[in-house]
């Protein structure tokens, strides 16, 4: 055992003089940074308490404990929070069904995920029907809001992105140029300005009496922005389809739309799922920008909680916690996308 360990250390840490030196430098750096970090995060940390008087030199996780529900549910009425949980469960079930590779009804799951699921989740969250109490969207917040924004935006942006990608490859100049213009404009401006336009200025461009909910406006802004990025992902997939496939589809006598729906897009999608997942990860991270324009997503709630007199000045704990939540979600999604990529590469791709 020790022999194997020694040979592993030799091969991986001290294989050459340079490597040995690097190992020592690295160890020194880690010895400098890790102990204080661990002491702050765990050893000196306080895990429970009623207000900031319990906090000491280390992290004050008691703050997170006290605010945990708000970070997840925002100001959603506590008696109604089971609706969020139920919606999340439904979503998780269908998402698992859609992602599990050996599910015989996978296609159906995907279709339900973008049709029935938003409907169920919407009814559950908004309420106002079936005896459910109406919960106005300005009470939504926390991580729930990030997830809602991500999910709704993906559901709108993905189909729009497919259309834009087809448009960009179209033979008709007007279609092509409009698609290119749309894609490049949205890709050329920062998301923050798009969100500002959508949430603050959009009512100026709509007739009186037509008011859209703040959250809906944010989703619209995000969707247009993300659709441009989705379009580029889809376009890359379409470019990976060989010319023969197109010719075969045409040879079968299929029209443009049927050929794309039955032959081209299904193949392209197999190639671009990792790209789509990556775009969704970026979108999920970017939903935090809504905190700047005054929606209380998890980042906004954390910022606001640090103003609470009982927990004043505990921003660091709040932000570390939010980062941890995002890391868990995004990292697991990116592992999934990587495994898909490997599978595509193994199966020969294109």
């Amino acid at each position: 055992m020790t022999e194997r360990l020694r040979s592993w250390i030799h091969a991986n840490l001290f294989s050459s003089r340079l490597n040995g030196f690097l190992t020592l430098v690295m160890l020194a750096l880690l010895a400098l940074t890790l102990p204080p970090l661990l002491r702050w995060a765990f050893l000196d940390a306080v895990y429970a308490g009623a207000d900031r008087s319990v906090c000491g030199a280390g992290a004050c996780w008691a703050f997170i404990d006290a605010r945990f529900d708000q970070f997840f549910y925002g100001r959603y009425a506590p008696s109604e929070r089971w609706r969020i949980n139920l919606a999340a469960l439904v979503l998780a079930l269908f998402a698992a069904g859609a992602m599990w590779p050996r599910n015989p009804r996978r296609t159906e799951c995907v279709i339900l995920l973008v049709t029935l699921c938003p409907l169920i989740a919407g009814v559950l969250l908004v309420g106002g029907v079936f005896g459910l109490k109406l919960v106005p969207t300005d009470q939504w917040g926390g991580l729930t809001l990030n997830v809602v924004l991500t999910y709704a935006t993906t559901a709108i942006a993905l189909p729009l992105g497919v259309l834009l990608a087809l448009g960009r490859r179209s033979r008709l100049p007007v279609v092509r140029w409009l698609s290119i213009g749309f894609i490049e404009i949205w890709r050329g401006v920062p998301l923050l300005t798009v969100l500002f336009m959508a949430t603050v200025m959009l009512p100026m461009f709509l007739p009186d009496g037509l008011t859209l909910d703040r959250l809906v406006r944010a989703i619209l802004g995000l969707s247009l922005f993300v659709a441009a990025y989705m379009a580029e992902v889809v376009r890359a997939g379409l470019q990976g389809i060989s010319k023969g496939q197109y010719e075969a589809a045409a040879g079968l006598g299929l029209g443009y739309w049927r050929a794309h729906r039955l032959i081209i897009l299904p193949q392209a999608f197999r190639l671009i799922v990792p790209g789509i997942v990556n775009t969704v990860i970026d979108l999920f991270k970017d939903t935090t920008l809504v905190s700047i324009i005054g929606l209380f997503d998890i980042l906004g709630i954390v910022g606001q909680s640090t103003k609470d007199p009982a927990w004043l000045g505990l921003g660091r704990e709040g932000y570390v916690f939010a980062a941890f939540v995002f890391f868990v979600c995004c990292f697991s999604l990116s592992l999934y996308s990587q495994s898909l990529e490997r599978k595509i590469a193994r199966s020969g791709g294109h």
Binding site: D286, L289, S291, L299, Y319, V320, A322, F327, F331, S334
Partner: peptide, 18 residues
């Protein structure tokens, strides 16, 4: 991996506030 999988805005605010 840690940096790639957390929001950029969160990181900037963390550097500033934290």
């Amino acid at each position: 991996e840690v940096v790639r999988n957390t929001p950029q805005l969160l990181q900037i605010v963390f550097w500033y506030v934290g």
